[in-house]
Amino acid sequence: MINIPGCPAHPDWVTQILVAISTGRIGDVLIDDYHRPKTFFTEFVQTGCTNAVSFAQKIDGHFGKRGGCLFYEVGCRGPMTHASCNRILWNRQSSKTRVNHPCLGCTEPGFPHHDLVKGSVFKTMKYLGFLPRDVPAGNSKLGYYLRAGFEKTMGKVEKIVGVNRELYKHSK
């Protein structure tokens, strides 16, 4: 059984698997624990996200603002959601995170996440008001908090010493 997740599933995820089968490549269709085809669901939504640099530099993004990463404040699940949205794009044009829209994690079990409880929609759920409850896949919580804390502190220092990282300040 092959599961194609997503709400909605990208048309390519459905049709390209059908093409693979019809061209005799079923043997190349590897599946993960949830029976998702690995060719589309190995990497994360973050792969190919135009805000990936901001994620690395811990620069916050917000609605209506150019640049910045949506993981910190508005609940983006791009770093822990397996899907190829930012590699193959939607409607041949764009993706949620490319237009400042937090990834909702619709290809992962549990969507809509946190059961839509109060404070979970378009807000990053946090411990103690600053530690994200969900951390990027492949990180231990403690390891992530330490690395992110270091990056964030470095970012503030660099800003003070005048390293300009506000990419969009003079662009539109």
Binding site: C7, W90, N91, R92, S95, K96, T97, V99, N100, L104
Partner: peptide, 15 residues
């Protein structure tokens, strides 16, 4: 496609 330029994707954007 124009919707996707501003909403990220069509259908099922929440932009």
């Amino acid at each position: 496609e124009v919707y996707a330029l501003f909403g990220g994707q069509w259908p099922h954007s929440s932009y």
